Computed example of a mutant assay.
Amino acid sequence: MLSEANFIAAFLVGLLGGVHCVGMCGGIVGALSFGLPEATRQRPLAQLPYLVAYNGGRIGSYVMAGAAMGGISALAMHLLDVRQAQLVLQLFAGGFLILMGLYLAGWWLGLARVEGLGARLWRHIEPLGRRLLPVSTPAHAFVLGLIWGWLPCGLVYSVLIWTLSAGSAGQGALLMLGFGLGTLPNLLLMGVIAARMSGQWMEPEPGFRRAARGRSMNRQRRA
């Protein structure tokens, strides 16, 4: 069974993997935020339902994948001696936690290679996401988030491999839920910042352009 300690560990992996999330998903978050309706971009509170829906769909995909991997581990336990299978799964989980710690610390990047495993699948899924742009409603954003959740990511795939130690579909789903919730603060913050910047840039006289125009006029006066 999934212990509370494992759930917390999965949450911390997602939370501490924020730097990785910025590098991996920053461009996607920015594109989604820039694609919001103009009226929504100009009101920070109006952006929140869309951002929550994006991430809710993404975490939903994580949970489904975790359930599938946990189901595989449950099948293995039925085929093998229960005690032997539990011991193997516990050793596997402990070893994999050490590898993920090294990965997050940047001391060993071997887990990044697992991203290539999902690249072929993503080639078929990614066009579906492009067809859903631009986003018009939170429900629309949720569906797009479901697709986003299958983006090839070494950190996500590493936690998925960890769910093989869960012992059941439900426990695998809970492990991925903990991880997904850990990634939520960083990606929500990125979405708010990106949407705010897009709102300023798209204004009739946006701050960035206004500042650039002011500098240009000052230079002309000095000349």
Rank of each mutant, 00 (worst) to 15 (best):
R130Q: 09
V135A: 03
F179T: 11
Y157H: 15
F179Q: 04
G106M: 06
M100E: 08
H124R: 15
G172F: 00
L133A: 11
L184Y: 04
S158T: 10
L97N: 09
L97F: 14
L102Q: 10
H140D: 10
W122H: 08
G116A: 07
L184D: 05
V159C: 08
C153P: 04
L160E: 04
A166M: 05
M100L: 13
L155A: 10
L160Y: 02
T137V: 08
R123N: 12
L188F: 04
T163Q: 01
F92M: 11
P138I: 14
W150N: 02
A139K: 12
G180Y: 04
L104I: 11
Y157M: 11
L99Q: 07
L128A: 10
L146V: 13
L87G: 12
L111W: 07
L121R: 05
L132T: 02
V159P: 02
R131N: 09
T163G: 03
I147L: 13
L187G: 07
G154R: 00
L181D: 07
G118E: 05
A93E: 10
A105V: 08
A105D: 05
G116E: 02
T163D: 00
G172I: 00
L133Y: 07
L175N: 02
I98D: 06
L104D: 03
L174V: 01
L121V: 15
R113Q: 12
S158F: 06
L187P: 01
L174D: 07
V159Y: 02
A119G: 14
A169K: 04
W108K: 09
I147A: 01
Q90L: 13
G145W: 04
G94R: 08
